[in-house]
Nucleic acid binder design. Structure first.
Lengths: 139, 139
DNA sequence: CTTGACCTTACAGTAACTGGAACCACTAGA
DNA sequence: TCTAGTGGTTCCAGTTACTGTAAGGTCAAG
């Protein structure tokens, strides 16, 4: 199979597949004309990578997961550990985003959004002490 | 004020402040010895930037917001528009992360996490059709 | 023989910094 | 005066995971 077919099958752009070869995630053979040839195992690996990336695993996590996948004597605990770490990071990100969301929603609701220049959003960003609420000990 | 003092006041690393000068977000004067000198307006700007970045605005959004802040005849609608767009992006990210979280949590719960090699997480990544659930029309 | 689809490499750019090397400036103390 | 320590400077490279672009080689069809 050539790279275009693999791209269609795996859902990954050809460019990405070349990149994955660059960083040694896959090692397709070459035809005499220089074209990459992907066998079923390569395609399977790339599909695995596409799924893992879609679940937010980093490339390095993917490398680890792929190695575990190919190690038939792995302990599932290893896989679960990687997943657990990733889950924690996702949770942290969600929490960060939700905090931002809460603040921005509040400010946005307070902002008239009309032709007048007065704007609580800019006031907050500029550090203006709005509605005499003097304690702002956060981080 | 020198860069170190500003870093302490604004909470931004000196390195970041230099970077912000590089991309023309601030334009501190220079002393004869080459040191940057920050006046109150500069420090205020940097504090503004630190807050906007903490709320997840991109650098380009920050540039826009800073320009709006300094335009005393702005319409608050402009600010609200930038904020609204950002809120939408945050919501999309949260949704993505929550979907990943749900899938990973499910798989993680199904994984024994012991010394045995059997692992639902790897099975899902490899595309193995687990428990005869044949429909997987997503994306 | 040309056209078009497909393949190749190599280099640059993205976002927003961060780290490191090599070097200059200033102050205080021996 | 020398020196140590702190803080400043520039410049270049690295991070993450690609993506864009240019310049060119390959192949099948008409």
């Amino acid at each position: 199979m050539n790279i275009g077919d693999v791209a269609r099958q795996s859902g990954l752009p050809a460019k990405t597949i070349r990149y994955y070869e660059d960083i040694s995630l896959v090692k397709p053979k070459r035809e005499t004309n220089g074209y990459r040839v992907f066998n079923d195992a390569d395609v399977h690996k790339l599909t695995f990578l596409a799924r893992a990336r879609a679940l937010g695993f980093t490339i390095e996590d993917c490398r680890t997961l792929l190695a575990l996948y190919e190690d038939k004597s792995r302990a599932s605990a290893e896989v679960k550990k990687v997943t657990g770490k990733h889950l924690n990071e996702i949770e942290a990100k969600i929490a960060d985003l939700q905090a931002m969301h809460a603040t921005l929603t509040r400010l946005s609701e307070e902002c008239a959004g009309d032709q007048r220049p007065d704007c609580p959003i800019l006031e907050e960003l500029s550090g203006k002490d709005r509605r005499s609420n003097t304690h702002d000990a956060k981080q």
